[in-house]
Write a protein that binds this DNA or RNA. Structure first.
Lengths: 197, 197, 197, 197
DNA sequence: GATGAATGAGACTTCATTCAT
DNA sequence: TATGAATGAAGTCTCATTCAT
């Protein structure tokens, strides 16, 4: 097995274990068992337990950004881009449930390295939204009196909270696709009927 | 000092310490020092470390619910109620920054008792939103083709994500009041200009 | 309530609690609750936890010695005295089950103060047996080629082991009286010279 | 060093420390130091402090039973078997003084697991005596009007009490061999029918 | 590189004892 | 004298990390 493979294998195991138990309740030996390596082997690939989490954030979120940018690239209409973002986000949550779980849990922690992390790589992901908003405001399909910095967080927060529900109880009645649809719809048009504007 | 006072004092210290370091990085001795009691004293008022967190949730969220319901009670228009909720939530975050920090961090954890907790007491808080939505749909000021269960989460998620930003960096440029305003505005009317509907 | 009464009450409670849980598993607060006094009150009557145990040994064994000497006093025949001792010992075990339990458990401990104790006050109790043996050897009703120091321990050990069984399971089939009888019988017809058979 | 060796080493250290201080006064760190391992290492071999004691009982008493049965096996005369048992018991006490000390102390404790233990494995050891008595009663060398269940305890109790003396003060004047001799003598000439004298 | 037994710092928690009331 | 809340020393046990094989 190549070095990169074992690195991947350990990271995959970490996603599984962190997702299930949370970072602090996860044991290095849990990850080692899941990855089918010895405890000590993990330290040949990572500096320490925190490093596994950080690496996991870095590498996996990087992939997400690449993927979602690719999905949006072909589209020109910011309204549709927003819809694509929402659907893509939900799809990611479903396909990478365990990773989503880890991100939801650990990105909220306030330990110094994580705080810093939220301000860099993770921000890139959310900034995709504000880029879309900017674009929409320039071509006047979005109102210009709303701040992109607020909208991006509101939009992401809405999707994130919705996906948390699904992660906690994946058997819920609202399909994630329908959720993405409704949330985009709400953000685009509001909940007050158009005629009453 | 009365017994109830020491209970409060320890809980206040716990909010401070948990908020600063997170549950798992907080030491009982940190809380004790903050509360200016001996380590052992904490165990006269709480069964164990987890119990402090649970009690904290139980007692503090209860208060929030009471407060926010009071704030909304006088209002009849669901649109205004939503605005009041948003403003009140932000006000709470500012006034009880440390508590907000703890809630944001720990309610995401996946340990069994917390998961269960999210499904009960905490749900009551969010359900205030869906109640408002229902009301609005009945009197036709809100569109009826949107699911209250989705809206409540989207709305709460938006506020929550916004307040996280403020908690991490309280010196940010967007005032929380302005945020509450914009988020309510987005939810009510959408980001697409009305005339283009 | 007089001072002496509270002293007694605490001691009685200690016998109960030590008997039930053993010295190390007994809590001062258990004894206090049993004695219906505050924890702190105990320290007005005893120096510390160990002191309760020591006092208990001292005072209670003292009583036993007085009682058993009284029971034997009227008798002249060493063979009958031995029988009386056995019966009396068993009676004590039954009547003061909890005290017996404490003595059985704690007199075996090897902590310094207890070791010392076994060599003094408790020895007095057992020495009643060797005194009887001596007497019997002098008037030739007991074989003189057996060492009183061995017999006293063997006899006490036999009774003690038998009573341990009863303490652990008071509902056993052998009555304690019958046991005392048999043990005395065994010892007598062994230590009585063969020619007197 | 093989895994089994370290298990042994820790157990040997535990026997030493428990024998010296008693279970409750023994510290895990004492045992670790004695065994020349780290505190944590002990928990790789045992679940907890109590488990060390239980394992110690289980493994060591098992060995004693095997040994003593072997010693008796060649003999046919129940009277001689009893003598062999007594001598062997005393020899064990001398050779395994520390283990004997632990057994004497801890088997008297009343904690649930130990009580239960006394009723199972330890009972096997004492039952060797009653088996001998039964045998002797069948071939009429022992009186049949004495209950084996009483005799076994009386005999064991006598030996046990005697060995306690030696353990507390190994420099005493009565040699253990002589004690075994006298105790057997006392018991034999009591349980052997008078007419066979 | 890989292993996993060993380490030992450090956490939580208990409870005998004190002392202000 | 009596109380019982408070103390804090000290113990058991966990687990990230190391290192000899």
């Amino acid at each position: 097995m190549k070095k990169a493979d074992k690195h991947k294998k350990i990271l995959a195991a970490a996603i599984h274990v962190f997702g299930e138990k949370g970072f602090y309740n996860a044991r290095i030996s849990d990850i080692a068992k899941e990855a089918k390596v010895a405890d000590g082997t993990i330290y040949l690939y990572f500096n320490n337990k925190h490093d596994i989490l950080l690496t996991l954030f870095e590498e996996e979120i990087g992939k997400l950004i690449v993927q979602i940018k690719g999905a949006i690239a072909e589209e020109k209409d910011p309204r549709k881009m927003l819809k694509i973002f929402a659907h893509n986000h939900m799809k990611l949550v479903i396909e990478k449930k365990e990773l989503a779980e880890v991100l939801q849990m650990e990105l909220r922690q306030s330990s110094a390295p994580i705080k810093q992390y939220r301000n860099t790589s993770f921000a890139d992901y959310i900034n995709i939204i504000s880029d879309i908003i900017h674009m929409g405001q320039e071509i006047k399909v979005f109102r210009s009196n709303l701040m992109p910095g607020v909208i991006k967080r509101a939009f992401f927060g809405a999707l994130d909270e919705m996906s948390r529900l699904w992660i906690l109880a994946p058997d819920n009645t609202y399909s994630m696709t329908e959720c993405a649809e409704q949330i985009t719809n709400i953000f685009l048009h509001g909940i007050v009927p158009a005629e009453s504007h």
